[in-house]
Design a protein around this nucleic acid. Structure first.
Lengths: 231, 231
DNA sequence: AATAATTTTTAGGCTTATCTAAAAATTATT
DNA sequence: AATAATTTTTAGATAAGCCTAAAAATTATT
């Protein structure tokens, strides 16, 4: 394969890429355009800075911007954002699988690595890892065209007693939560069976990796699992 | 091991790091201070830009600058530069050994990766590679303290007939030369025996990997090998 | 619907890293 | 040693990405 030519997606600065990524994430849950303030909050910057950048990105045809109406990524913009997320998530898998990082340590480094420009590099990392489809948090990895295959996920708290499932992802990715999961040896892909749900506080006794464990409802709310699998 | 604290070496921009690296390389062969023009040429920038940056780096105590007298790195500056070079060379080994890059493809990517800030990342890459001491071009990899162990190297052209040696490094790292070596299947670590030297043009018949090969004197001038090993 | 609160934009500045053009210092040449 | 050539520095500009403060537009509340 030949990688001599830089493609059209290589002409964005790290800052521009961070905006695209933020807008992409916000756009997934927004009903209308993504607001200036929402972007500012996500990127920990000022609304006025966002307005500036958003105008620049509109000039580059990666998003549609109308004063006071928020922004929407174009098809092009969505693809570029998805490919940055692809790189981020592949690097996360690499750090955990090959370099002994814990999944609560990967984010800051992946945040830097995602901006490295080299199609061959990320393709080879992908191959080295065996073409993974989810990152260490269970989030899907977009393919080379930027397409994401979504798996139906439900909160563990929606399951009933005796149902068995597989942990697909976590809702909350805070360091505190990830460290809790580490300590309890809970990882993506683990089989989870609901043994008993306490009606009073909805605390739940589960079996994970053949070990029984009592988790609070708050934890059960943040574990995303494969849709029911009654036994 | 704990990596929570950022150390004193994390406070340089990519641009500053590039200057330090360039000055370090130029300083190895300079008798006096490294000149503004030499730095400008190496970094493909203007002398006036160099003056600006050099003042800033002097303020940060990583080099000594006196108007019109060129610059010299401080102990501190040398260490920082060596650690950037360490990262660059470890990434090069990684790209070649783990990601199927050819040694003429690694430079641009390593140039980006060397600026990633994460002590754990580079330590783990180092371990994954088995703590290599030389990069794919045979250049030594500084240790974690920035110390370089130099091996005595001589040009292949200085050997006499029947002498046997090992290829340690290449003098010229141009794409053309590296591709020539690739094509001829010549790599760092290969055993080389001088079979015959033609007195007229100093072209040399050598045996590399049990294959006889005729190389020009220009090639022999650019292959750096272990000091004589008469047979 | 008018006013208040909030959001967003504009206007003007700042910093980093670059540039050009001109001035100053050093080095080379006659 | 004086002059010419080269190198280096200074002065002033520019672009990217950010900021504050004030103005304008939108949204919420009475």
């Amino acid at each position: 394969m030949v990688y001599l030519l830089y493609n059209q997606y290589n002409m964005f600065t790290s800052s521009e890429e961070n905006y695209l990524k933020a807008i992409y994430h916000l756009g997934l849950v927004a009903k209308k355009g993504v607001s200036t303030n929402a972007i500012a909050k996500k990127l920990d910057t000022k609304a006025s800075s966002v307005t500036d950048m958003v105008k620049k990105l509109a000039d580059k045809k990666v998003l549609i911007y109308q004063k006071y109406q928020g922004v929407n990524l174009t098809i092009e913009g969505k693809k570029i954002a998805a490919l940055i997320i692809r790189k981020h998530r592949l690097w996360e898998v690499f750090l955990v699988e090959k370099l002994n990082f814990n999944w609560d340590e990967v984010h800051d480094v992946a945040e830097q690595l995602e901006h490295i420009k080299s199609p061959k590099l990320i393709d080879e990392i992908d191959a080295l890892l065996g073409f993974p489809t989810v990152d260490p948090h269970g989030d899907p990895i977009p393919d080379k065209e930027g397409e994401i295959t979504l798996r139906k996920k439900v909160k563990l708290s929606t399951l009933k007693e005796n149902e068995e499932t597989v942990l697909l992802a976590v809702k909350d990715s805070s360091d505190d939560f990830l460290r809790y999961l580490n300590k309890k040896k809970i990882a993506i892909g683990n089989t989870i069976k609901v043994i008993h749900i306490e009606p009073f506080d909805h605390s739940t006794l589960v079996q994970i990796n053949d070990v029984e464990l009592l988790i609070t409802n708050e934890v059960a709310e943040n574990l995303l699992v494969k849709e029911s699998n009654a036994v």
